[in-house]
Protein backbone atom coordinates (compact mmCIF):
# COMPACT_ATOMS: atom_id res chain seq x y z
CA UNK A 1 0.00 0.00 0.00
CA UNK A 2 1.36 3.47 -0.86
CA UNK A 3 0.60 6.61 1.12
CA UNK A 4 -3.13 6.12 0.62
CA UNK A 5 -5.41 3.18 -0.02
CA UNK A 6 -5.67 2.41 -3.75
CA UNK A 7 -9.07 3.13 -5.29
CA UNK A 8 -9.65 -0.46 -6.31
CA UNK A 9 -8.85 -1.66 -2.80
CA UNK A 10 -11.26 0.86 -1.29
CA UNK A 11 -14.03 -0.40 -3.58
CA UNK A 12 -13.21 -3.98 -2.61
CA UNK A 13 -13.37 -3.05 1.06
CA UNK A 14 -16.93 -1.76 0.64
CA UNK A 15 -17.91 -4.78 -1.42
CA UNK A 16 -16.56 -7.13 1.28
CA UNK A 17 -14.05 -8.60 -1.14
CA UNK A 18 -10.87 -8.20 0.93
CA UNK A 19 -9.37 -10.98 3.01
CA UNK A 20 -8.99 -10.55 6.75
CA UNK A 21 -5.40 -9.34 6.60
CA UNK A 22 -6.14 -6.71 3.93
CA UNK A 23 -9.24 -5.56 5.85
CA UNK A 24 -7.17 -5.10 8.99
CA UNK A 25 -4.51 -3.07 7.12
CA UNK A 26 -7.19 -0.90 5.54
CA UNK A 27 -8.93 -0.33 8.88
CA UNK A 28 -5.67 0.66 10.51
CA UNK A 29 -4.93 3.16 7.71
CA UNK A 30 -8.44 4.60 7.73
CA UNK A 31 -8.30 5.26 11.45
CA UNK A 32 -5.41 7.67 10.81
CA UNK A 33 -6.19 9.07 7.34
CA UNK A 34 -8.99 11.63 6.96
CA UNK A 35 -8.79 11.92 3.12
CA UNK A 36 -9.21 8.14 2.71
CA UNK A 37 -12.12 8.13 5.18
CA UNK A 38 -13.76 10.94 3.19
CA UNK A 39 -13.21 9.04 -0.04
CA UNK A 40 -14.66 5.90 1.50
CA UNK A 41 -17.78 7.77 2.60
CA UNK A 42 -18.17 9.38 -0.83
CA UNK A 43 -18.00 6.01 -2.55
CA UNK A 44 -20.44 4.49 -0.02
CA UNK A 45 -22.91 7.32 -0.76
CA UNK A 46 -22.62 6.75 -4.50
CA UNK A 47 -23.16 3.02 -4.14
CA UNK A 48 -26.22 3.62 -1.91
CA UNK A 49 -27.64 5.92 -4.56
CA UNK A 50 -27.02 3.38 -7.29
CA UNK A 51 -28.47 0.55 -5.20
CA UNK A 52 -31.65 2.51 -4.40
CA UNK A 53 -32.29 3.35 -8.04
CA UNK A 54 -34.19 0.76 -10.13
CA UNK A 55 -32.04 -1.50 -12.27
CA UNK A 56 -31.82 0.11 -15.68
CA UNK A 57 -33.19 -1.82 -18.61
CA UNK A 58 -30.64 -1.76 -21.41
CA UNK A 59 -31.88 -0.87 -24.89
CA UNK A 60 -31.01 -3.30 -27.67
CA UNK A 61 -28.91 -0.69 -29.40
CA UNK A 62 -27.16 0.63 -26.30
CA UNK A 63 -24.28 2.17 -28.22
CA UNK A 64 -26.51 4.28 -30.41
CA UNK A 65 -28.66 5.36 -27.47
CA UNK A 66 -25.57 6.45 -25.55
CA UNK A 67 -24.20 8.36 -28.53
CA UNK A 68 -27.51 9.90 -29.37
CA UNK A 69 -27.95 11.30 -25.87
CA UNK A 70 -25.92 14.15 -27.28
CA UNK A 71 -26.79 14.03 -30.92
CA UNK A 72 -30.21 12.80 -31.95
CA UNK A 73 -31.33 11.53 -35.33
CA UNK A 74 -34.29 13.82 -35.91
CA UNK A 75 -36.92 13.41 -38.60
CA UNK A 76 -34.96 15.59 -40.97
CA UNK A 77 -36.06 13.44 -43.92
CA UNK A 78 -39.59 14.79 -43.73
CA UNK A 79 -38.32 18.32 -43.43
CA UNK A 80 -36.06 18.23 -46.45
CA UNK A 81 -38.39 16.30 -48.73
CA UNK A 82 -40.34 18.65 -51.08
CA UNK A 83 -44.04 18.83 -50.27
CA UNK A 84 -45.24 18.96 -53.88
CA UNK A 85 -43.61 18.20 -57.20
CA UNK A 86 -45.45 20.22 -59.84
CA UNK A 87 -44.52 19.42 -63.46
CA UNK A 88 -44.13 22.44 -65.71
CA UNK A 89 -46.15 22.47 -68.91
CA UNK A 90 -48.79 20.22 -70.47
CA UNK A 91 -46.24 17.81 -71.96
CA UNK A 92 -44.59 17.27 -68.61
CA UNK A 93 -48.00 16.78 -66.99
CA UNK A 94 -48.90 14.16 -69.59
CA UNK A 95 -45.60 12.37 -69.07
CA UNK A 96 -46.18 12.33 -65.35
CA UNK A 97 -49.68 10.93 -65.75
CA UNK A 98 -48.37 8.19 -68.06
CA UNK A 99 -45.61 7.26 -65.67
CA UNK A 100 -48.00 7.06 -62.75
CA UNK A 101 -50.44 4.88 -64.72
CA UNK A 102 -47.64 2.59 -65.83
CA UNK A 103 -46.42 2.28 -62.28
CA UNK A 104 -49.89 1.43 -61.01
CA UNK A 105 -50.36 -1.36 -63.54
CA UNK A 106 -46.95 -3.04 -63.20
CA UNK A 107 -45.45 -4.40 -60.01
CA UNK A 108 -41.94 -2.92 -59.65
CA UNK A 109 -39.16 -5.46 -59.92
CA UNK A 110 -37.29 -4.10 -56.90
CA UNK A 111 -38.42 -2.96 -53.50
CA UNK A 112 -37.37 0.46 -52.19
CA UNK A 113 -34.69 0.45 -49.51
CA UNK A 114 -36.02 3.36 -47.46
CA UNK A 115 -38.75 1.46 -45.51
CA UNK A 116 -36.17 -1.15 -44.48
CA UNK A 117 -33.75 1.52 -43.27
CA UNK A 118 -36.59 3.17 -41.36
CA UNK A 119 -37.49 -0.16 -39.73
CA UNK A 120 -33.84 -0.79 -38.78
CA UNK A 121 -33.42 2.68 -37.28
CA UNK A 122 -36.76 2.45 -35.45
CA UNK A 123 -35.52 -0.76 -33.85
CA UNK A 124 -32.37 1.10 -32.86
CA UNK A 125 -34.46 3.55 -30.90
CA UNK A 126 -34.35 6.34 -33.43
CA UNK A 127 -37.14 8.32 -34.97
CA UNK A 128 -39.19 6.56 -37.61
CA UNK A 129 -38.02 8.87 -40.33
CA UNK A 130 -34.37 8.33 -41.11
CA UNK A 131 -31.89 10.99 -42.01
CA UNK A 132 -32.04 12.21 -45.61
CA UNK A 133 -28.59 10.86 -46.40
CA UNK A 134 -29.62 7.28 -46.98
CA UNK A 135 -27.68 5.39 -49.60
CA UNK A 136 -24.79 7.51 -50.75
CA UNK A 137 -26.75 8.89 -53.70
CA UNK A 138 -26.70 12.10 -51.69
CA UNK A 139 -23.41 11.45 -49.97
CA UNK A 140 -20.52 10.37 -52.17
CA UNK A 141 -18.23 10.17 -49.17
CA UNK A 142 -20.14 7.22 -47.72
CA UNK A 143 -19.09 4.99 -50.63
CA UNK A 144 -15.49 5.99 -50.01
CA UNK A 145 -16.01 5.04 -46.38
CA UNK A 146 -16.81 1.47 -47.31
CA UNK A 147 -14.18 1.25 -50.04
CA UNK A 148 -11.51 2.00 -47.48
CA UNK A 149 -12.94 -0.54 -45.06
CA UNK A 150 -11.77 -3.42 -47.26
CA UNK A 151 -8.16 -2.30 -47.40
CA UNK A 152 -7.30 -3.27 -43.86
CA UNK A 153 -9.60 -6.24 -43.42
CA UNK A 154 -6.79 -8.59 -42.39
CA UNK A 155 -6.19 -6.54 -39.24
CA UNK A 156 -9.48 -7.78 -37.91
Amino acid sequence: MNEHIEGVELSSLIDGALDAAARARAAAHLSACAPCRAELESLRAFKRLAADAPRRALPADLALRLERRHVAAPPWALLTRPRVWAPAGALAAAALAAALWLRSTQAPAELPLEPLVAAHEAAAGQTLTPEPVLVASADADSAALLADDGAGGSAE
Partner: peptide, 17 residues
Protein backbone atom coordinates in the same frame (compact mmCIF):
# COMPACT_ATOMS: atom_id res chain seq x y z
CA UNK B 1 -39.16 -12.40 -52.22
CA UNK B 2 -37.88 -9.58 -54.45
CA UNK B 3 -34.53 -7.77 -54.57
CA UNK B 4 -34.17 -4.41 -52.84
CA UNK B 5 -32.97 -1.43 -54.85
CA UNK B 6 -29.48 -0.29 -53.84
CA UNK B 7 -28.30 2.80 -55.81
CA UNK B 8 -25.36 1.99 -58.08
CA UNK B 9 -23.24 4.91 -56.94
CA UNK B 10 -23.42 3.61 -53.36
CA UNK B 11 -21.96 0.22 -54.19
CA UNK B 12 -18.45 -0.74 -53.20
CA UNK B 13 -16.12 -3.12 -55.04
CA UNK B 14 -15.21 -6.36 -53.25
CA UNK B 15 -12.16 -5.98 -51.01
CA UNK B 16 -9.99 -8.62 -49.41
CA UNK B 17 -13.06 -10.23 -47.86
Amino acid sequence: DRPVHLPKNASVPAGRN
